[in-house]
Design a protein around this nucleic acid. Structure first.
Lengths: 230, 230
DNA sequence: ACATTTGATTGATATTTATCAATTCAAAGC
DNA sequence: GCTTTGAATTGATAAATATCAATCAAATGT
């Protein structure tokens, strides 16, 4: 593991408040590895042995059933994934693969479980992290049930623009992955984006410009209870 | 609060392992109340002040947006709801209403947050509870994305039969609520049930009989990663 | 027991979304 | 620079799902 990784990880909400000694112990048992693009990190159904942290690159979490596949989310640096499975000592519910060359830190699940029994602050951080993740999935499920695909696309674009802090931004993710995350086919996303042209959306390849936010807002009707805070 | 409530609550995974003194303190600050059918207990967006426990009756959690409404889940005795919002001290993501006359215990969120800082066992239980809830929603979202409505209905029926321990059981919930939970219209559910007749499903009002499980299985292809353990 | 209300079902239709096939486009490798 | 590959788009069609309206059934209250 690189020395520069430690402060970044330490700065995460999950590890921010724990005792230094315990943090060091967790990091002692952890190891880092680089993976090429398109590599399967985790296969759903496998036993959850490690908490994963993306320090570089990008990881797609997706689910499979009966030959079908659906993206659930994309994890970007610096972010953790599959905490819940580690805690429950249960099989992973989602598979994970790198979307680009990525560096991943892996912390043995048993270490985690041991440490939050000793360190209240870490326990509280874990509670907060899980509650946050839970709420994120609930919002996602709400979006799937309450909005149609065009509305989901509009909301997604507004969210990304807000994150970028600009009306113009790069998607940074393949459209077919975005489509799957939003619960639709690539063809449907393509058409949805085209039809949103009349609502102030301009798309050229990966580049998106929301040149008339006022027009797009009523389509998406963004709501913190669906799209998250901020 | 009735004296008979305490042992039931104490027996929940969330409260099972904590110190007796802390449990008593939580219960001291809690209060119980009975509500008639159809009453709004919680409105989404309101600040989360209380963890709710259903000791009698049935509560529907649902979400609203732009005049549309979608059921997320139904909570039955003895079960808790909206733990995550309490922990995050954030607005409720879901509304809640009674489906029948219900007795609810309410524990101030601030008490919860205070206690798990003092009681490691309660902290660990909270972590486990949240991880379990998180995984349940992930499975739900997976079902919405990977299965079509007919498959979701089939899987739901098989799950209910497994819970009942019998091939014949009562739904116990209005079909329109079930439909909304499964992400479909009542009409669509009605037709799906009808079409499942040829796959070993017999429905008469609230009564369901799966008289040919072997025929239904390939439709639903139940999977613990989608339908939960057990 | 009857009337009233509400939910469930059914049929007809519209809309949304997926699928399949063909083409265009863009990036990566040689 | 050219070729190759995979992604994105587009068009045509099919399938799934929603909507609307009418009827039927069941539960509730009087």
């Amino acid at each position: 593991m690189r020395p520069s990784d430690l402060p970044e990880i330490r700065h995460l909400p999950l590890f921010r408040d724990m005792l230094q000694a315990n943090f060091e112990q967790l990091m002692q048992g952890a190891y880092a590895q680089s993976f090429p693009e398109g590599l399967m990190l985790i296969r759903q159904g496998d036993p959850a042995d490690f908490l994963h942290i993306v320090v570089e690159g990008m990881v797609e979490l997706f689910a499979e059933w009966k030959g079908r596949s659906a993206s659930m989310t994309v994890v970007q640096p610096v972010g953790t994934f599959i905490l819940a499975a580690c805690i429950r000592d249960a099989p992973y519910l989602m598979s994970a693969r790198t979307l680009e060359r990525s560096r991943i830190i892996m912390i043995p699940a048993s270490d985690l479980r041991a440490v939050f029994r000793r360190d209240v602050e870490f326990a509280v951080s874990t509670i907060n992290e899980l509650a946050t993740c839970y709420r994120a999935v609930v919002r996602h499920a709400k979006g799937l049930k309450l909005r149609d695909s065009r509305e989901r696309v509009a909301a997604y674009l507004l969210k990304r623009a807000a994150q970028a802090g600009q009306a113009e931004f790069d998607l940074g993710i393949e459209k077919r992955v975005i489509a799957s995350m939003l619960g639709m086919t690539p063809e449907n996303l393509s058409r949805a984006l085209k039809s949103l042209a009349e609502d102030g959306v301009r798309v050229q390849g990966q580049r998106v410009t929301l040149w008339d936010r006022a027009r797009l807002l009523p389509v998406a009707q963004p709501d913190p209870l669906l799209d998250g805070p901020g």
